[in-house]
Design a protein around this nucleic acid. Structure first.
Lengths: 255, 255
DNA sequence: ACAAAACAACATATATAATGTTATTTTAAT
DNA sequence: ATTAAAATAACATTATATATGTTGTTTTGT
């Protein structure tokens, strides 16, 4: 998917070559991704599915930058102590962090993220408070008035938010109902942390979600260039640097 | 679990014998079941978990009477028309009905049942409103103040409730927070239907959940004997009769 | 103190999933 | 219509995950 997003199209023979597998395997994998609606198979390769603007689909996003996300999740995990009440929003980055919460039990976890709910349901020593609401398949989470109402009655020690677009010192989102829930989370938490992938910098979107100064810290894998404005504004920045692919002992950190 | 429910206790050596496996395998399996809270390991065997009175755990129940449940679900489904807002509570019976809701789309479904949420998440033409709350692993659903609060702001055309204990003209439940959510559902629906397995008749429990007269109809697979009192009280009763086990073409109806 | 039971650690077996191979069918360009 | 590349189907192979068994050691209740 990374290659496909970068090049808009991939060649089947080339993929078989790169990954050192047979063409049949590539065929099967592309079939699966087509089935999931992530690409369109063409004779000799595949192209990105039309309508999938800038990697906006969560199913694509969760296949991207797995390594960097793991680093960011680890950095976020350092801020969590057993006994805390932790709030986490929608998104694949958040889902990854959510899955690792079992390392910090006992914990109370509040989330509208369906992936996290499913994952933590049967975890021991985790009080799981699911935020209900109207299910949104695109973001794989629950939103709406119900969600916002419930959030107004809750309080968390720390909230982890993520954002698809960072521009200047603001965070943006394309969906109004998502923004409202994120804002409700910001209002319901004592400490607020923003998790943001380097790809998100320099993008904007219709709705302003928050100012970066609303957050106690920002965890990112962004390269130095993107961060100067933030540094200047004096916002704490934790960097989980993108990992050099050639390093063989990376894999041990992926779960 | 069947043996355990029948005999109240099982012997480890005996189990290894019956299933023709090593004692170590029995040890491990019993460990898993203990972990799941279904039994208590004792030296030389296991006993049924205290508090698990009469097969009360949903994980046990969902292994029982699959066929009768399918019939009851079908009867319930007849009451649902496309376009309705349907509310469904916790329980394995309810989960089975929930899974079949895709046959009546478009539909708005409101539920606190984790199995139904998971199942209907990616169903098309179903607006899924999940009731949040504190996750309860025993009942595989969400409960608590949050759930009740949210329910007070919702309204459904029809609600399907289930009950673990029917005694006389009353319905009972052992868990207070479950009762509160079920009551909130009763209050939030225009029409109310009770689904009740024949095993549940003649049992009672600490908390009264509702009077049978609160329901427009009761769907059951109970034999005539259990129902005389209900019939006399003039409550509508739909019977989905228990299926004769010897019929080989039963299985095709189980999903 | 001592058998029986429980457990841990490793070995083996079984089941499941992923990948590869080969033969056959489909496809697009001539 | 012909044909070579690509796609597919069916089966073989390999890898991985899961379940079970074995052995030796520790714990437990009498």
């Amino acid at each position: 998917m990374d290659i496909l997003i970068a090049d808009r199209a991939v060649d089947l023979d080339d993929l078989a070559d790169r990954f050192a597998v047979s063409k049949m395997t590539i065929h099967r994998d592309l079939d699966d991704l087509e089935q999931a609606g992530l690409l369109r198979k063409m004779r000799g390769g595949a192209t990105i599915e039309t309508g999938t603007q800038f990697e906006s689909d969560f199913r694509i996003r969760e296949l991207q930058d797995g390594e960097a996300k793991a680093r960011m999740a680890a950095a976020a995990l350092d801020l969590i102590e057993p006994g805390m009440t932790v709030m986490i929003n929608d998104g694949s980055m958040a889902a990854l962090l959510g899955a690792q919460l079992t390392q910090k039990v006992p914990l109370t976890v509040i989330t509208n993220n369906a992936a996290i709910i499913e994952r933590l349901k049967d975890a021991s020593r985790i009080r799981l408070i699911a935020l209900g609401g109207l299910f949104n398949a695109k973001f794989n989470a629950f939103f709406g008035v119900l969600t916002e109402t419930v959030l107004s009655e809750l309080r968390a020690d720390i909230a982890f938010l993520s954002s698809p677009a960072i521009s200047g010192l603001g965070s943006f989102h394309m969906d109004e109902s998502v923004v409202r829930v994120k804002r409700a989370m910001i209002a319901a938490a004592d400490r607020r942390i923003l998790l943001v992938n380097h790809r998100r910098f320099g993008h904007s979107a219709l709705h302003r979600m928050a100012d970066l100064s609303d957050f106690e810290a920002i965890i990112t894998d962004a390269p130095p260039e993107s961060r100067t404005a933030i540094d200047r504004a004096g916002i704490a920045l934790t960097i989980a640097p993108p990992v050099r692919q050639q390093n063989p002992d990376i894999k041990e950190t992926t779960p």
